[in-house]
Computed example of a mutant assay.
Amino acid sequence: MTLLIGLLLDAVLGEPRWLWSRAPHPAVLMGRAVGWIDARFNIGKHRKRAGTLAFAGMCLCALLIGLVLTAIPGNWIDVIVLAVLLAQRSLVDHVRAVATALRAGLPQGRAAVAMIVGRDTAALSAPATARAAIESAAENLSDGVIAPAFWFAVAGLPGLLVYKITNTADSMIGYRTPRHQDFGWTAARFDDLLNWIPARLTALLIWVLRPSRARLSAIMAEAPLHRSPNAGWPESAMAHVLGVALSGPRVYHGTTRDYPFVNPQGRHRIGPTDIDAACRVLWLAWGVGVFAVVIATLF
């Protein structure tokens, strides 16, 4: 029941500006902690060992905080923390903002999508801008909603907080750059591990919306070709449900990466209406997940 209430509260309230303009969001605090650890310990010759120890310390702190919060009588603190750390409403809002901006013009669309993706956006075409938004929608449905809910269901607040600090660390230091390929190695690998099941659950939640169009065999064949061991699953499912091609070549830090397309036979000329369709898929998949939680709660 706690998980169900948390999912519903997040969907209704999202991230209230009146609150987070006055107090730092827990995710922001986690990001500051990761940034401080990166600046303080990502030095010297033994960066992989330093990164492993620093990351283990972060996870231990998250675990202890979770245990302390769990010891508070009642489940109200669980509901509040869960609702705050889920991101369904904010995800849809950010993705939909790209569609709105893209309708106003390509520069506006590029600026909006730059808020939610890590690739270079200055030279994106209109279809590439829409594709980036839809890919972010699919991946973040897994990372920002399904995975936190899954780990809360498995291990309560300790599991949720360990997952969130891991995902935050991966998003900041988990890149294969000269600075972070060693220091962030453990965080990135642990994030891959924690997202293995949720990514596939997310693909399943998307697939059941249109199984006649999104063949499960095609999703299972294409997902492992993705650059990420997990992101390919929700992206492939989203691509097939919408009938569009996703992933493909993109530019990071001035370097073009020639990644293969997911659902390459799908439409390549996509735009704001396809982003709107992706937002509908986000809510429908969320609804299927909520229904599954209700069934699990009853039985």
Rank of each mutant, 00 (worst) to 15 (best):
T70A: 13
G184E: 02
L141Y: 09
A138T: 03
L216S: 02
M172P: 05
E139A: 05
R131P: 00
N140T: 08
V262Y: 00
A132E: 08
G6A: 12
M238P: 10
V145R: 00
T70K: 13
G6N: 06
F150R: 05
G287D: 11
G66Y: 10
Q265Y: 02
I116A: 02
V79T: 13
N230H: 03
I134Q: 03
A50L: 10
S217W: 12
G174A: 05
D38I: 08
M1G: 11
V154L: 15
I5G: 05
I146C: 05
I146A: 09
A132F: 04
A239H: 06
V262M: 15
I77P: 01
A101L: 09
A153N: 08
I80E: 02
G254S: 12
I295L: 15
R200T: 03
T297Q: 13
A33D: 01
N230F: 10
D143Q: 12
R89S: 12
L19M: 06
R280D: 15
A101D: 09
S217F: 00
L63S: 13
T2G: 00
A149Q: 07
D191I: 08
G66D: 04
W20P: 00
G105K: 02
V117L: 03
L9Q: 02
Q108I: 01
V288D: 01
N140P: 04
D93T: 14
G44P: 08
D276M: 05
A214L: 09
A123T: 14
G159Q: 03
M30L: 14
F152L: 07
A231C: 05
W151Y: 01
D38P: 06
C59A: 15
W286N: 07
P127T: 05
A245W: 03
A218E: 13
D274Q: 14
L53M: 10
A239I: 03
A223N: 06
C61E: 00
L86H: 08
W36I: 13
L205Q: 00
L67K: 12
W36F: 14
L91Y: 04
K164N: 07
L282W: 04
A83L: 09
S90Q: 11
T2N: 11
T168G: 07
L60Q: 10
V145C: 04
P211F: 04
M1H: 08
H46V: 03
V251L: 07
C279M: 11
E135D: 07
R257P: 00
F261L: 15
T297W: 14
P198G: 06
E235Y: 04
